[in-house]
Amino acid sequence: MQYGLGDEVQRWGLAGFHGAPGWTVLRTAPFELLMQGTPPLLARLSSRLGVSAFQYNIYDSTPEFLMEADANGRVELSGFVGQEITRYWNSEPPMDRLQTQFRIIEPSAVAAWAESAIPEARVTGWLYPSRANSLLTDFDKLWESQRADLVRWLGQQGIQIDPESHEWRVHPANIVRRLAQAGSAFLPAEECVEPAIKAVFGGPNARHCDNLFLVETLVPHAPMPVDGFVLYAEASSK
């Protein structure tokens, strides 16, 4: 149930529970179920309910992919899926879409809620060394400009960068806002972006917003560890 495309898996699982105010968390097995179909199930669900929705995935700790859908079913993509760069894009993704960025989701309200509800929360990032003293390719120049932009942003937030480890720590709400403003460039996916999204949008049930929920609940059909609903569908043998 956990892996594979929807039409390759005999049984589907879908669970839902409350996230932050105004948000509902859905967990599926297989985990990309809502991203599949033409149009994607996520877009059809958003259109039917008249709300915006998104799914954010990371692959092997580094590549990240974001699918968003608005209330009219419009879909926006950013990032890429592991080694399958063209997956969901059907061709090479545009250069300006290689980093994940909210283009539909407006996170201001939920970010403000998170700052008030969990003021002590922090996520960690680090600053990679500059390449400014090396011969620069066009990619290196883009890399340097993104790095400089992050340094400026951290300064504007009053965030200190450790001179030895080059680590910095910030409230998850700030990361979610930056995803809408400048995207995920130079933000570590596993240590920074993913936990920020879970903390802000998952609200009091953030701890259930990861793949362990699939492994420990949906796949073995275990009791729900949180108030919500769960549905299973079995493919016909005919």
Rank of each mutant, 00 (worst) to 15 (best):
M1R: 07
M1C: 00
Y3C: 03
L5K: 10
D7Q: 03
V9Q: 08
Q10P: 02
R11M: 06
G13D: 12
L14K: 01
H18L: 11
P21K: 13
P21N: 08
V25R: 02
R27S: 11
F31M: 15
F31N: 13
L33C: 01
P39G: 11
P40H: 06
L41C: 06
L42V: 05
R44N: 08
L45T: 14
S46T: 04
S52V: 09
A53L: 05
Y56T: 01
S61F: 14
S61N: 14
T62Y: 13
E64Y: 10
E64P: 00
E64I: 08
E68W: 12
A69D: 07
D70T: 10
D70I: 13
N72A: 15
V75E: 04
V81N: 03
I85L: 09
T86L: 00
R87M: 09
Y88L: 05
S91Q: 13
S91C: 06
E92D: 09
P94A: 05
R97H: 14
I104G: 07
I105W: 15
S108P: 00
A109E: 15
A109V: 13
A109W: 02
A114L: 01
A117W: 13
I118H: 10
I118C: 07
P119A: 05
P119V: 06
R122T: 08
Y128I: 03
R131Y: 01
L136S: 01
T137S: 15
D140Q: 09
E144I: 06
E144T: 04
Q146P: 04
R147Q: 11
R147L: 13
D149W: 00
V151A: 12
R152H: 11
G155W: 06
R169V: 04
H171N: 00
R177Q: 14
R178S: 00
A185I: 01
A196C: 09
A199Q: 15
F201Y: 11
V215K: 12
T217S: 08
T217A: 09
T217V: 15
M224H: 08
V226D: 10
V230G: 03
L231C: 10
A233H: 09
E234W: 05
S237T: 14
